[in-house]
């Protein structure tokens, strides 16, 4: 997911307070920034929301890769608006994290130094135009699986950010599927692009949910705190069940020979992605990790004089105003 493998932080707070805190969460009462919260809850949330925000920002890059090559004026506008939304979503999420006492600049520095992670999916390349369709259809589709339940997360600012994001996201998956339909019903070359995109992005999309965490203590704690709403396997199953008929409608083949309907469980059986590849990507060895971090670092470094310049001007103006008063 956009926030993957989030370890819960140990908490050493007063057990009485912890009990009351948990009771409140169990009652679905939102935690707000100035409320007492366990240190572990706060730290885990910073990590999760920060990683989610970073994913939105780095996620601009693979799709941004096609903005200047979009094939029509309308497609260019739709794609630009979508990638812009991702910047907006990053902004909302950073703001939610900032309520926990961390600055956006701090979080940014941690992303740029590689200390904080972002979703594995954005380390994959977008190689043909159908990838832009597939990213909307599969990647946003997978993200929405996770984000819809997160609207009910226990932390107020995070929940409100997710509500706003989900409202804006609704067009993202649709525009992706719309591209896929055009491609799948198009020329032979376009069909080939569509199948190629699905072949490359299917397993990385399944990886977005993270490895099975049914037995993970972190997952159990995070679910109790309602900062994680479902297990990874639950969401992945839901995603596969939703996506298979959509692929069939397009006339595309999901690259999994073991994909079969399982009547008993009422869902599809499917092959696991190659988890060793997933861990390689997390370690920085995905196809685009280096490119992505280089691009973010360059934007940040090249922009320093702009941020400083505008700040300096604002301070001059303030000083002049104070002097005049």
């Amino acid at each position: 997911m956009y926030a993957q493998m989030i370890k819960s932080e140990a908490t050493t707070d007063d057990p009485e307070k912890l009990k009351e805190f948990q009771a409140r969460i169990d009652d679905d009462i939102k935690v707000e920034p100035r409320d007492w919260m366990p240190e572990g809850y706060r730290k885990t949330l910073i990590r999760q929301i920060g990683q989610h925000a970073h994913s939105e920002i780095v996620g601009q890059l693979p799709e941004g890769n096609w903005i200047t090559r979009a094939p029509t004026l309308e497609r260019k506008m739709i794609l630009l608006a979508k990638v812009q939304d991702e910047a907006g979503h990053g902004l909302y999420l950073y703001a939610a994290a900032e309520t926990l006492g961390v600055s956006r600049d701090d979080l940014t520095e941690q992303l740029l130094s590689g200390k904080m992670k972002y979703s594995s999916i954005f380390n994959y390349a977008t190689l043909n135009w159908a990838d832009i369709g597939a990213v909307g259809w599969l990647v946003d589709g997978a993200a929405i699986m996770n984000q819809v339940p997160l609207q009910r997360t226990s932390y107020g600012p995070y929940s409100r950010a997710m509500i706003r994001i989900c409202k804006e996201e609704s067009f993202h998956q649709r525009q992706g599927y719309d591209i896929m339909m055009k491609m799948a019903q198009g020329t032979e070359a376009q069909k080939k692009m569509a199948q190629d995109a699905l072949n490359r992005l299917w397993y990385p999309s399944l990886m977005m949910f993270g490895p099975s965490d049914a037995d993970s203590v972190h997952s159990t704690q995070n679910m109790a705190w309602k900062i994680k709403m479902n297990t990874n396997d639950e969401l992945r199953q839901k995603f596969v069940d939703q996506t298979v008929p959509q692929a069939e409608y397009l006339g595309l083949t999901i690259p999994d020979e073991n994909l079969t309907w399982n009547e008993k469980k009422g869902g599809y059986d499917y092959s696991d992605p190659d988890w060793s590849e997933f861990f390689d990507v997390l370690k920085g060895n995905g196809p685009c990790n280096v490119d992505r971090l280089e691009a973010r670092n360059k934007a940040w470094d090249d922009g320093a004089w702009v941020r400083d310049g505008l700040m300096a001007h604002a301070e001059k103006k303030r000083a002049a105003k104070t002097a005049a008063e």
Binding site: I57, L61, M77, A87
Partner: peptide, 29 residues
């Protein structure tokens, strides 16, 4: 201007530049 998307000095500028590009491409149509 659209070439800046994802590469601007700060998020707020990234979003503003994209709006400018969107307006311009809309006018182009």
């Amino acid at each position: 201007v659209s070439e800046w998307c994802g590469h601007a000095p700060v998020l707020e500028e990234d979003i503003a530049l994209a709006n400018t590009a969107l307006d311009l491409i809309g006018q182009t149509q």
